[in-house]
Design a protein around this nucleic acid. Structure first.
Length: 555
RNA sequence: UGGGGCGUCGCCAAGCGGUAAGGCACCGGAUUUUGAUUCCGGCAUCCCCAGGUUCGAAUCCUGGCGCCCCAGCCA
């Protein structure tokens, strides 16, 4: 149904649909998201999903999910399942409208015979290599195949024999008879059927021949009644072919194709081939590794569907090749999680602090807000005692200029607790600081000094006796270069080997029993998410989704 | 030297002949027990370049320049 409430950013496709509705070219809007099940969906697909499903939603139409399963050599049921899951996770529902190109194999086959009957398709005996040579080049026209003028009857019986499986892979193909001298390479008698002996995820062993994308996509659109067939820019040259089939076949509707620029994101790669390679070469731990730009990976990292949708809205839809900075994506989760995520404290690199003037054995509890701006999210109690942990990053023996955390001799506030002053350090044999000695101001209970004096720095902490162990996985960008696959260097040389760091951290104890996908802001550190697969009560695992903005670290 | 696209602020992106939206980034400043958040304020006399049409152009015309895509029996 139309969501007149939130204003949607205009884009050229919306304008086209507006016009089509005003002019009556179409009454309803039917779009489709047509993935090939040969890999996991990535953030680029999310852009397409949001576009197609979003258009259908906003114009009161429907969006089909259609598997473009025309090449059994590459496709697999695992991918079909993961794709459905990703689309659902993103928050979209195809309802009854689940289709497969393979649902139409019989019809497509019939249409191929129809074309043959019209003298518009022929069986080719040339080898793949010969076909390539005969095709010509960008600047020279192609040469017609000697088999181009085969009689209709011969074509028909050969094509039927192909279907029966009488030839090995590659022995023959069916070609559309269009124009070998077209400046558009796609029109130089494109191959429309090839022989593939492989099990198909949907049709199993039923077929020996499979239609090419060009001979399936537009026809499926027409069969399903798709009104606006939206694809990426590189298919623009295929549009004349798309239209040619619709014009030369007895189809009942004429969908129109529109193209938009695919998403490119800095510090990552988006091609399925490279994503496959990262997985198989072991650079990451599977398709859902939290560093992967796959929807499964982004999800496991802890991103919310809302934030991914917000991202897709924010980047817009255009026709110019564009690279979106990954920080735009990161900012989208921050915005959402800042609103919604409860706060908690965690210490990534524990450094022990002993409060010398605090009674041994004493424990106090402090109230900590679960959200500084949203009182309705309540409070929790935090235990304080003589021995604490702070983050090693929050102490500097010789402070850099502008550093206002813990430093010898100066005061710092322990969030929600007391103001303390570092009065000494303990070192191990190598000279490394392993413990810090502090004194606290008893008149600063809760963190505010009784005399009203200002303390610039506030740091997070955990009581040694009241904290739990946790594994925290610190994720960073997968590549060290903003454009890893630009230029001629192998993109793999830019893989960031430090993109995952696992630290033995400390957390507030109640965090260990939280359910998978629970998200928190660990104060001053960032947003974290209980890992989907590895988080257990006796071994809590949190993934860092994204750090907080940090104007100190930036310096 | 073929064909198809694209070129508006650092990154996206509106704009469709009437005198440059918005977001992100960035820079100031205020508040802050997260160096977070929030809040104010700043940020293209100019739209790849050069001509032309027009009272008036980023928007129309002409000519350049730059970038992307196409020679799979992949999608």
């Amino acid at each position: 149904m139309p969501t007149e409430s939130q204003p949607v950013a205009g884009n050229f496709i919306r304008s086209i649909i507006d016009d089509d509705i005003k002019s009556g070219r179409c009454r309803g809007v039917v779009t489709r998201f047509p993935p090939e099940p040969n890999g996991y969906l990535h953030i680029g697909h999310a852009k397409s999903i949001c576009l197609n499903f979003g258009l259908a939603r906003d114009f009161g139409g429907v969006c089909h999910l259609r598997f473009d399963d025309t090449n059994p050599a590459k496709e697999d049921m695992e991918y079909i399942d993961s794709i459905k899951e990703s689309v659902r996770w993103l928050g979209f529902d195809w309802g009854e409208n689940l289709y497969n190109a393979s649902d139409n194999f019989e019809k497509l086959y019939e249409w191929a015979e129809y074309l043959i009957g019209q003298g518009k398709a022929y069986v080719e005996d040339l080898s793949a290599e010969e076909i390539r040579r005969y095709r010509g080049t960008l600047t020279e026209p192609g040469v017609e195949s000697p088999y181009r003028s085969r009689p209709v009857e011969e074509n028909l019986s050969l094509f039927r024999a192909m279907r029966r499986g009488e030839f090995p892979d590659g022995a023959k193909v069916l070609r559309a008879r269009i124009d070998m001298s077209s400046p558009n390479m796609n029109l130089r008698d494109p191959v429309i059927y090839r022989i593939i002996n492989a099990a198909h995820p949907h049709t199993a062993e039923r077929w020996k021949i499979y239609p090419m994308y060009d001979f399936a996509h537009g026809q499926c659109d027409a069969i399903e009644g798709v009104t606006h067939s939206i694809c990426t820019l590189e298919f623009e040259d295929h549009k004349p072919l798309y239209d040619w089939f619709l014009e030369n076949l007895p189809v009942e509707s004429k969908p129109k194709q529109y193209e938009f620029a695919r998403l490119n994101l800095t510090y990552t790669v988006m091609s399925k081939r490279k994503l496959h390679e990262l997985v198989s070469a072991g650079f990451v731990n599977g398709w859902d590794d939290p560093r992967m730009p796959t929807i499964a990976g982004i999800r496991r990292r802890g991103y919310t569907p809302e934030s991914v949708r917000a991202f897709c809205e924010r980047i817009g839809v255009g026709r110019s090749d564009s690279w979106i900075d990954i920080s735009v994506l990161e900012e989208c989760v921050r915005e959402e999680l800042n609103e919604k995520a409860p706060r908690a404290m965690a210490v990534l690199r524990p450094l022990k602090v002993v409060i010398l003037n605090y009674p041994d054995g004493k424990t106090e509890e402090f109230d900590a807000a679960n959200h500084p701006q949203r009182a309705e999210m309540g409070e929790r109690r935090i235990s304080f005692s003589r021995e604490l942990y702070i983050d090693a990053d929050d102490f500097m023996e010789n402070p850099a200029k502008g550093f206002f955390r813990m430093t010898p001799g100066s005061e710092v506030r322990l969030r929600y607790a007391y103001i303390v002053r570092c009065v000494g350090v303990v070192r191990d044999e190598s000279g490394k600081i392993i413990e810090i000695h502090c004194e606290y101001d008893p008149d600063s209970r809760g963190g505010a000094a009784a005399d009203g004096r200002k303390v610039k720095g506030t740091i997070h902490w955990l009581s040694v006796a009241h904290s739990a162990d946790a594994e925290i996985r610190l994720y960073d960008r997968l590549f060290t270069e903003p454009y890893p696959d630009r230029g001629d260097a192998d993109y793999k040389t830019f893989v960031n080997l430090l993109s995952e760091e696992r630290v033995a951290a400390k957390i507030e104890p109640q965090l260990s029993t939280v359910s998978a996908f629970s998200r928190y802001q660990f104060e001053r550190l960032g947003y974290f998410c209980a890992d989907e697969k590895d988080h257990l009560a006796d071994h809590p695992v949190f993934n860092r989704i994204v750090t907080l903005r940090d104007s100190w670290a930036k310096r």
